[in-house]
C-alpha cells in the first residue's frame, strides 16, 4: 500500500505495511534516527513527533494514520539548532545521556506553539508523559522558561 505524507516539509511516498508504527518507518526505513524508541507503548514520550502540529507518540501511531498529513521530527524542527528551545536546552545544559531529549524538545515545542508563556504548573502538566531517566526535569523546566522568555521578547 502506498502512503504519501509530508515529512519535515518534503513530500514523502512509501510502501510500508500500513500497520507498521510510524516510529520504525522514520527510524529504520528513512534513517531519521533522532526520534527514539523507548517503550513501544506510548508510555515514555521518547518518540514524540508532530502530526499536523500536534505532539504524538510515533511508536503507537500506525503509518497509515499519517497519510495526507504533515509530520515533523526533531530533524525538521529547525535548521542548525536554531529553535529557541534548542538554544535554551544548550544554555541550561539540559541533556545528560540525551536519549529522551528529542522527545522532550518536540513535546515542549508543541507546548510553546499553543501557550507562549506557560506557568510552571502548565509546563509540568504538559511534559508529564515524557520520562527522563537521568532526571533532567528541573533543567527542562528552566529551559522552557528561557525559551518562552525569548519567544515573548520577539
Amino acid at each position: 500500500m502506498s502512503i504519501e505524507f509530508e515529512l519535515n516539509g518534503s513530500k514523502t511516498k512509501l510502501n510500508p505495511q500500513p500497520e507498521t508504527a510510524l516510529l520504525w518507518v522514520l527510524r529504520e526505513h528513512l534513517n531519521l534516527t533522532g526520534t527514539k524508541f523507548g517503550c513501544g507503548s506510548g508510555l515514555c514520550g521518547a518518540c514524540t513527533v508532530h502530526l499536523d502540529g500536534q505532539p504524538i507518540r510515533a511508536c503507537i501511531t500506525p503509518v497509515s494514520a499519517v497519510a495526507g498529513k504533515s509530520v515533523t521530527t526533531i530533524e525538521g524542527l529547525s535548521k542548525n539548532r536554531s529553535h529557541p528551545l534548542q538554544k535554551a536546552w544548550v544554555e541550561a545544559q539540559v541533556p545528560q545521556c540525551g536519549y529522551c531529549q528529542s522527545g522532550q524538545i518536540m513535546q515542549a515545542a508543541a507546548l510553546l506553539e499553543s501557550n507562549k508563556n506557560p506557568s510552571r504548573d502548565e509546563i509540568v502538566a504538559y511534559m508529564n508523559g515524557n520520562i527522563c531517566r537521568c532526571g533532567t526535569y528541573l533543567r527542562i523546566i528552566r529551559a522552557i522558561k528561557i525559551a518562552s522568555a525569548k519567544v515573548n521578547e520577539g
Binding site: 527510524r27 534516527t33 533522532g34 527514539k36 530533524e75 524542527l77 529547525s78 545544559q93 524538545i105
Partner: peptide, 21 residues
Amino acid sequence: VPRVDIPEKVDGSAIYSMDVN
C-alpha cells in the same frame, strides 16, 4: 565549560547504537 556532547543531543544527531545501520 559547556559539555561537548550537548549540541548534538538537542537536534537528534547524536548517535547511539540504536541509530546505527
